[in-house]
């Protein structure tokens, strides 16, 4: 098969975006259906929380619907969509920080972070490898985490990541390198012995 499913989806996206820009709500519905899972999984890896991921995904498509006319080049829809999603993730994270600031009690995430940092054995006994990796991924700085998600899970080229985030390819590579190193350091410091090793 010459084309991958991702390529087919991308081709369909371009057609659907053009139709949506002309006011075809039917096409936009299909566009949402095509990308919903991808955006949800990006948000899920960013937050590690289903509810927040659903919230961000819905906000993303609301923003896409409102600003669809701003896309001049439909071929860049994919990058634009990821950019909107990442911005929504950042906004949601700020909202969560404000909530935590005004909250008397610490959030579950904060508690989970403490467990990872200070009680790795308990954390390991309680969670599967996937959950632990997801939790550790969440602890990365935003800029490194976003690059890792885009490269590792969305399979984007460095050129595409650079275009999406408005940075240079070298910056994207640098963030990815230090992100991976930081992940490894966190695992080593926690004394975790993950099954994949």
């Amino acid at each position: 098969m010459a084309e991958t499913l991702r390529d087919i989806a991308l081709y369909h996206s371009e057609c659907l975006v053009e139709k949506s820009q002309k006011g075809d709500n039917h096409a936009f519905g299909k566009l949402v259906g095509l990308w919903f899972k991808r955006i949800y999984n990006v948000a899920l890896k960013y937050f590690g929380d289903h509810d927040l991921a659903m919230e961000v995904t819905q906000r993303t498509f609301i923003a896409v619907y409102k600003h669809l006319d701003n896309i001049k080049d439909v071929k860049s829809f994919k990058y634009w969509l990821y950019k909107v999603a990442i911005n929504q993730c950042h906004e949601e994270e700020r909202r969560q920080k404000r909530k935590t600031w005004f909250s008397i009690f610490q959030s579950d995430d904060a508690n989970r972070m403490e467990e990872i940092n200070f009680q790795p054995e308990k954390e390991y006994q309680r969670k599967e490898t996937e959950e632990i990796m997801g939790s550790i991924l969440k602890t990365l700085p935003e800029e490194q985490k976003v690059v890792i998600i885009m490269k590792e899970y969305e399979g984007m080229k460095f050129r595409e990541i650079a275009e999406t985030l408005g940075i240079s390819e070298n910056t994207a590579k640098s963030r990815l390198y230090y992100g991976l190193k930081r992940l490894r350091k966190t695992i080593e410091n926690s004394g975790l012995n993950l099954e994949y090793k």
Binding site: N25, V32, F36, T129, G134, I187, Y196
Partner: peptide
């Protein structure tokens, strides 16, 4: 990278406004 590969994509139910009514204007 092998460790990160342990994190798999999760299946997600599309919201009710898409589920079963895709193509309609209900999501709008």
């Amino acid at each position: 990278r092998q460790g990160l590969a342990q994190i798999q994509d999760k299946e997600v139910m599309e919201p009710f406004f898409l589920w079963g009514k895709q193509g309609s204007d209900s999501w709008v």
